[in-house]
Each structure stands twice: as C-alpha cells, then as structure tokens.
C-alpha cells in the first residue's frame, strides 16, 4: 500500500523525538513524506495538490505533537480545507473510501497521566475521537494513535531508539499491508500492541 506521512510540527528544530521519527519516515523509499509547515509556511494550503496526493495513497499518517489534546493548527487547517464536501464527505464525496488514517504523536506527559485514574482522566485514544469520527465520515478506517510519551525525556531515558525502530516497523508493515486492521482498530494504542498486530513479512511476490 502507498503510505503518506503528513508531518506537522511548527518548531521541529526543538523537537528531539519528532525530528527523529520524521527522519525515519523520510528515509523510507516507499513512504511519501510531507513536511506541512515547510510546504505551507503561510498556511496557504494548495487544496488541489493535497487532494491529488491523497488520491495517490492508501494510508495517511498524521505525525505531530499533541497540542492541547489535539494537533497543531496547520494540520487542523489542512483538514478544514482539504477534506472538502463533495470530495471527502457528503453524498458525492467518496474519494477517500477505504483508505486508512492514523495519528503518530508525541506527548509531553507520561503514560500514567492518561487513563481513568490519571491526571488527564481519559485514555489518550479518547482525545482522538474527533480524528476517528472524521475518518469515519470520510468512509476511511481509523487506527488508534502510535504515541511516544514524555517525549522530552525519551532521549535521555534511552527510549528514543526503540520508538524510532518501532515507527519504522509500523510504516513498513502498513506499506506491505501486514497490519491486522480489525484487531488494530480495537486496541488502545498502536504503539503498545504493535508486535501482536503485525503479521510476519510476506513472501516478496506479495508485497504491494
């Protein structure tokens, strides 16, 4: 499957984790990597171009930090403009039917702040309900977030390398169509159950 990563980070120069994840995604030849803030520094999103790009891919990954339980502004702008009526939704909008949408995110807070007993009072996945519903309205499948918690400490705690490898693994598996989508849709976080959700590599002939 053709995978595109839409990377949205207004200050990627300050991010250790997102930059590393972005570099991993960028390095994969079968992934289309788009740095949204680089392409649209003025928020002047080229809707036609973005829609064409969507049509050319089967998997759309939003990669971004979590800002106020959501995504950075430009990615929201992207949704507002690109997911048009008549294209993505509405009685005639079927362009995205069957495609996969997911979020790959970094959070400042630790894993234990999420969940019903944590300070945030909800699972991280719950905060992504708008993305899930957006995907469904566009007749897409949505997968739970792949998350790096306490991103500010990932490097010094030695977690970064493993996370980057896992991300690469996820993108590869998506490209090779080796994700158990039915199970994946039901897990809490993709990053926590990744091993169980990926099927072993298929013989080369079947690789998309």
């Amino acid at each position: 499957m053709r995978v595109q990563v839409l990377f949205a980070h207004p200050r990627s120069d300050r991010s250790e984790v997102n930059t590393a994840l972005a570099a991993a995604a960028r390095s994969l030849p079968y992934v289309t990597f788009v740095d949204l803030y680089a392409e649209y520094p003025d928020f002047d999103i080229d809707v036609d171009r973005e829609q064409d790009r969507l049509l050319g891919h089967d998997v759309v990954v939003f990669q971004h930090p979590v800002y106020w339980y959501s995504c950075p502004a430009l990615l929201k702008e992207w949704q507002d403009l690109v997911l048009e009526h008549g294209f993505a939704y509405g009685s005639q909008g079927r362009a995205l039917t069957g495609k996969i949408l997911m979020n790959v995110v970094t959070c400042g807070a630790r894993r234990e702040t999420y969940g019903y007993s944590g300070a945030n009072g909800h699972e991280l996945r719950d905060f992504f309900l708008p993305f899930e519903k957006t995907a469904h309205l566009c007749r897409m499948r949505w997968l739970p977030p792949f998350a790096v918690f306490a991103a500010g400490h990932a490097l010094e705690e030695g977690r970064l390398e493993g996370q980057v490898a896992a991300y690469r693994c996820l993108l590869t598996a998506l490209a090779e169509n080796r994700i158990d989508l039915v199970r994946a849709e039901r897990v809490n976080l993709l990053s926590e159950d990744l091993d169980r959700l990926i099927w072993p590599a298929a013989p080369a002939a079947e690789v998309a």
Binding site: V47, D80, L81, E84, H85, G86, Y89, G90, L137
Partner: peptide, 19 residues
C-alpha cells in the same frame, strides 16, 4: 458558494446532509 476561489471553510450545501 462552491466556486473554486471560495472553497475554503464553506459549510456543506443545505440540500446535502453532512453525514
């Protein structure tokens, strides 16, 4: 309201249900 320049942030037309 659905010409090409005006395409940003427009609500769906009244006749077509959003979902």
């Amino acid at each position: 309201r659905h010409d090409t320049s005006d395409r940003g942030w427009t609500p769906p037309p009244k006749g077509d249900a959003a979902s």
